[in-house]
Amino acid sequence: MEFLLAIMTGILYAAGLYMMLRRSLVKLIIGLIMISNGANLLIFLLGRITKGHPPIIKGSAEVFADIYADPVPQALILTAIVISFGLQSFAIILVKRAYKVVKTDDLDEMNTTDEEI
């Protein structure tokens, strides 16, 4: 299972990087979304996938005796999801506004500063 998720993380990173290197702003945003999903999977994999009990220590014990699910990677992923959603929303609005002004989503055409008379 971990091997499959590691392969999927690599595919998401590769596809996201490929999309970000295209000239279209829409493809840039799709690549950004793919890379953020790949990062979430990477954090999930670093937390080690275990089927365990919730990390609650009984009153009589001082340390965990059984296998438990680590809550830190899950909290990091939730935080990353919220941050990436805000970044994606900002990027979509920014691209929409740039498209309204320039009338194109091609980065090469947006890069020129020459004004045609």
Rank of each mutant, 00 (worst) to 15 (best):
L12E: 01
L41W: 01
I81L: 13
L94H: 08
V72A: 09
V26I: 14
R23T: 10
R48M: 11
L78F: 09
G52I: 02
A91T: 03
V102W: 13
E62H: 11
A80Y: 09
R23H: 13
T79H: 11
V102C: 13
I43C: 01
L87F: 07
E115T: 09
L45W: 00
K100S: 14
I30F: 10
L46A: 11
A98E: 11
Q74E: 08
V63N: 10
L28W: 04
M110A: 11
K103A: 04
T113D: 14
D105E: 13
Y18G: 06
D106S: 06
F90E: 05
V102N: 13
I33V: 15
P71C: 04
A69L: 08
T104C: 03
F85C: 13
T9D: 06
A15L: 15
Y68F: 12
I57T: 03
S24D: 12
V95G: 02
G59Q: 14
L21A: 15
N111I: 03
T79Q: 11
I83P: 01
E62R: 09
M110Y: 02
A61Q: 12
E109M: 12
T79D: 10
L41Y: 03
M34P: 00
I93H: 13
R22G: 07
K58N: 14
I83F: 12
I49H: 11
D108P: 03
L25G: 08
I43M: 06
S84M: 07
S60F: 11
Q88N: 15
V82K: 07
M34Y: 06
I117W: 10
M20H: 03
G31K: 00
F85A: 15
P71S: 04
G52C: 04
K27W: 14
N40E: 15
F64L: 01
V63A: 10
D70K: 03
A61D: 14
L107A: 01
K27S: 13
E115D: 14
